[in-house]
Design a protein around this nucleic acid. Structure first.
Lengths: 338, 338
DNA sequence: GCACTCTGGGGAAGCGCTCCCAACATTGAA
DNA sequence: TTCAATGTTGGGAGCGCTTCCCCAGAGTGC
């Protein structure tokens, strides 16, 4: 009852004494019970229950060759439901392999990423899964990581030849833009991440490709590529729609920009402002898109699947595929019309 | 260059040999460098960089009294952005205290929760933060947890006297319902979790209290309390709205039920079905609520803050407040009219 | 009856690290 | 010059666990 601090966790020795056997027998029992008489096993298990014993996994993994059972995962923004789903996918596959996940949030800060990776390795993780920030990546080079395999998700890092899981960003953005063009739009605005963000660049490329192919103008005045959050996205959409030659459609390269754009469009409708009510294509799904006051085409993809795929690549490398060449998996996206 | 498996991480001994000092000097240098000559420190750091050495945190925490630097966090649903934000809040505070977070997802499964807790303790976490599932909680009793402090978030566990962070569920639900009644509604439907879910029960209580107080009828036919996901919520809303005496307003006890209800309402509007277009009060915020075709009042609260608060309670207990009585913090919610 | 194998069990060592203590060097004061 | 105090370094031990090795005893085949 008294939860006095320092009532240390019981050790294997105390279990052994309580069960009247040697520590070795306890260890063997907990390891599955090979070559231990059933009656002794039961005495051991009773002592374990009695004392509330938990095997010290850290001490266990100290022994070389003994895996730690941990996977280090660093994502850029836990508050984004997309990455929450991603982490969930990783966690599912990790659990299937009996591994636990240590999760860190980088917030797009590469100093924080370095710190996380270093801590992960210090904790003897068996592998790393990262949504990399766009900064310097010296700490991800194989000679720094030693033995620990790395899988990148969502984004690639220049000059780093490792397993990677990507979306079909270019193709999805292309097809989404084509959908707008097919609907008769020619002035199509672009909202997206800055070009140093891998997906931002790729999705812009898809947009640009479609526009050029159809001879539609890519006008700098209606291309905004520096919004990372909803507020700045809203502002960018406002500036665009305030112009006399406002676009009649908007391509948004990610969830945050979509929400920002729709907020601004909603405001204009509520306040009865003049000007177009632009159609929207959104890379990334969001809930209730069908209830929006303007038609929204969604370029949908499955974050959880992305996480599962990343974890699958990692465990493949932890298994047989140790020395194999780096693989890149590109997951398809679907364009869903309103 | 060759990443042969088994190119083991370098140890403190190798660093010592490379720097021409004893392992002790390396250890001291890494611990801050007290009582180590600056020139030796530099030689050590150079060797560390050269070899790509990472201190083995597991071995380090083996020594009794040495903290592991880990906090175990288990939440019920990572895919829910609400819990993603919660985890983010925990992570922030943990990072401020130099701790890392191990995150697990229970999926409302208490067997999984047991397993996670047991693994966390095996990894010598310094503390636990849990959004508990509603099942059996024997594994959370202090005699099972020994030394490891526990903080519950969002939900309480019957008969467990531990630090807890809650929302003002009852008050929020009460005020949200009152808002509907004030607007003239009397037939107000209820969508929520089953009553074994702590928040589900509390929020129903707030609704009921407001209804009874104003003499409005609480009719079983328009009270649905068993939806955990969007699809079943949608179905429940449909059944309710298909009735000849359909409610003119709906109180939704959480995000999932809100989304489901609005999907159904949107469908009815699009398809031009007859019947009321009910006003909605939603416990839990969601993005773009201002763009909905029916007025939505939001009972808003800050998941990230909830996480921060939970972590703060935990670190208080890890610090001075070791023996203090269990505390409960109830965070306020705000009712935001459309 | 004997040598052999097989099973169940214990002891010793050591994983990487840090605490404790001893040894030595250096300094300032007496 | 001597002594004590302080600063700097290294050696030994042990954290909890498991792998390797060995031993006792039972069973087996001849």
């Amino acid at each position: 009852m008294s939860t006095t601090r320092g009532a240390r966790q019981p050790t294997i020795k105390e279990v052994a004494r309580s069960a009247g056997v040697s520590p070795m027998t306890v260890s063997r029992t907990l390891a599955g019970g090979r070559n231990v008489r059933p009656d002794l096993q039961e005495r051991v298990m009773a002592a374990v229950r009695e004392l509330g014993y938990y095997r010290n996994e850290n001490a266990r993994s100290l022994r070389p060759g003994q895996p730690s059972g941990l996977i280090g995962v660093a994502i850029t923004n836990l508050a984004n439901p997309y990455y929450g789903n991603f982490a969930l996918g990783v966690e599912e596959v990790a659990a299937e392999h009996g591994r636990r996940m240590i999760l860190g949030n980088t917030g797009e800060d590469d100093a924080r990423e370095r710190q996380l990776v270093s801590d992960f390795i210090g904790r003897q993780v068996e592998g790393l899964i990262l949504v990399p920030t766009s900064g310097d990546a010296a700490h991800l080079r194989p000679e720094r990581l030693g033995d620990v395999p790395l899988v990148l998700a969502s984004r690639r890092v220049l000059g780093l030849e490792v397993d990677t899981v990507l979306l079909d960003d270019v193709g999805g953005a292309y097809r989404g833009t084509i959908a707008l063009l097919d609907a008769g739009h020619t002035r199509i605005g672009f909202l997206g991440n800055r070009s140093s963000v891998f997906t931002g660049e790729r999705r812009y490329k898809g947009y640009e490709q479609a526009m050029l192919e159809r001879g539609a103008p890519v006008e700098p005045a209606i291309v905004a590529r520096d919004q990372q959050d909803v507020v700045s996205a809203s502002r960018a959409a406002r500036a665009m729609l305030d112009r006399p030659d406002a676009p009649t459609a908007i391509f948004s390269a990610n969830n945050r920009n979509t929400i920002g754009a729709l907020r601004e469009i909603g405001r204009r409708i509520r306040e009865g402002l003049p000007g177009p009510r632009p159609a929207v294509v959104s890379f990334d799904d969001f809930e209730l898109s069908e209830l929006m006051p303007v038609p929204v085409t969604v370029i949908d993809h499955d974050a959880r699947l992305l996480g599962r795929e990343a974890a699958t690549l990692l465990f493949a490398r932890l298994g047989d595929g140790a020395g194999a060449a780096a693989r890149t998996v590109e997951l398809p996206v679907s364009v869903e019309h309103p």
